[in-house]
Design a protein around this nucleic acid. Structure first.
Length: 460
DNA sequence: CTCCATCAAG
């Protein structure tokens, strides 16, 4: 009887704890735990799992491990949910090997992975660019007799699209429908998004129409996906209408639609409307994350209000949000466009100090700005600092070199670029060939042509 | 009662 009462109160405490964790009051959740122990309510595995997931979200994987130690000290054994949360935390920061190790550790500890374990592992492998391993996990799941759920299929479909297998994803979707496997609104959203991004707009429209004939209700994600698709394919007014129809439906519970429409407006130079929707987003009461701030900073830069942009940056950092590679590329781009090349270089230095995983876009902005202001040699020097270069890097550089008449150097970089497996825009290729020809470098024209031919062969 | 999937930012 006393035991039953203790279990009931533990359950109540867990509900309370989960609510506090959800609202971000981790400290209060911890003090509730202390009070509960003092009052004789023993924490159980759910209590610790709740705290573990919250700590992982707030402070990362190591904070999660600290909770794992605490639960072991309290004599509470971790279960599949515990490991699932840790795997997610590892996956979130790109620690794929760590996630795989945790999965193995779970097996060694005699804890049977559930569908969620397989789902999170699959997702981790897809997002780290290992689709083949993800498919293997899916096969392994079936072999171990764990039934895939909606999330499993949704993860798989999205992964197929992201790995460039749109046709396979489409077939898989039809298969799921045919055999009556779970297909929900997330599945439809995944399909519409994937088809759009892989250029199969007609198919995307077909799936959207099909969605309208089902009992599933399109949600904010559906609207955002459709909007983005419109903006992508130049149907600006249609995209804006989609946003407005979502707005008419009442309160938008999500920042995604706002960010989508604001950046589309900024790109069009319609900053007044962008400002109006920024206000709505801020007033909507949703918590602004780094992407929201980045969108707003981009808007300020585009307006030429650099002081306001940097003020937003400090607001964001004071709010406990970290700037990311998007923030830096937006700032570098904004500074360059307003002629503050040195300040842009300073931002790149900050970025180097932060040791961010991807800085190629920020570098590209500066390379492009240097090339456009005829400081091609400075751009070439900058290229040496870049760990990774892409098509944009070389397109800017090749165009820049052609503009100042250095066609030989341009052809040299074009060939380096092709050798590295990169490419440049067709306009840059034409500029090089036309330039070489006009300068009478017949030999170079031949070399460039054969390099382009080789690159095409290797592609197919 | 606790853990996963779809949409936004250059």
């Amino acid at each position: 009887m006393a035991r039953a009462r203790a279990q009931l109160s533990t359950r109540l405490m867990n509900v309370c704890l989960a609510a506090l964790c959800r609202s971000g009051s981790l400290e209060r959740a911890e003090s509730v735990l202390i009070d509960a122990i003092l009052l004789g309510m023993p924490p159980d595995v759910v209590t610790y799992n709740t705290l573990l997931a919250a700590h992982c979200r707030a402070a990362g994987l190591d904070a999660g491990f600290a909770v794992l130690r605490r639960m072991r000290e309290a004599g509470v054994w971790p279960n599949a949910v515990t490991y699932n949360s840790l795997i997610v935390a590892a996956s979130r920061v790109g620690l794929t090997m760590r996630a795989l190790d945790l999965f193995d550790e779970m097996l060694r500890a005699g804890i049977a992975p559930d569908a969620w374990s397989y789902n999170v592992l699959m997702h981790c492998l897809f997002r780290s660019g290992h689709p083949e391993d993800a498919y293997r996990v899916f096969a392994d799941m079936a072999e171990k007799g764990v039934t895939p759920c909606t999330t499993t299929y949704n993860t798989l479909l999205d992964g197929l699209f992201k790995a460039g297998h749109a046709t396979n994803a489409y077939r898989m979707f039809r298969y799921l429908q045919r055999v009556g496997l779970p297909v929900g609104i997330v599945t439809y959203n995944t399909m519409i998004n994937g088809l759009c991004r892989s250029g199969k707009v007609g198919y995307a429209r077909m799936i959207l129409r099909e969605l309208g004939r089902t009992e599933h209700t399109p949600n904010a994600v559906t609207y955002t996906t459709v909007m983005k698709c419109c903006f992508r394919y130049g149907r600006f007014d249609q995209g804006l209408e989609t946003f407005l129809s979502l707005l008419e439906g009442g309160h938008i519970p999500d920042v995604f639609p706002y960010c989508t429409v604001i950046s589309a407006l900024v790109k069009k130079g319609r900053v007044e409307e962008a400002n109006a929707y920024s206000e709505l987003m801020i007033q909507s009461g949703s918590r602004l994350d780094t992407a929201c701030y980045n969108t707003l900073i981009h808007l300020r830069c585009q307006e030429g209000k650099l002081d306001d942009a940097f003020e937003l940056l400090s607001m964001m950092e004071e709010g406990g949000l970290e700037s990311d590679e998007y923030t830096f590329s937006i700032l570098v781009n904004g500074l360059c466009k307003l002629g503050h090349i040195e300040a842009a270089e300073k931002q790149l230095c900050y970025m180097e100090m932060r040791d961010m995983e991807s800085n190629v876009v920020a570098y590209n902005c500066l390379v492009d700005a240097l090339c456009k202001s005829d400081q091609v040699d400075a751009a070439i020097r900058l290229l040496h600092d870049m760990k990774l270069k892409d098509d944009f890097t070389y397109t800017s550089l090749v165009h820049g070199l052609c503009r100042v008449g250095r066609y030989h150097m341009a052809s040299k970089f074009l060939r380096i670029c092709l050798r590295e497996g990169n490419n440049v825009l067709a306009s840059a290729k034409r500029a090089v060939i036309a330039g070489l020809r006009s300068a009478g470098f017949k030999n170079d024209v031949r070399k460039v042509r054969s390099a382009l031919y080789m690159a095409r062969l290797l592609k197919s």
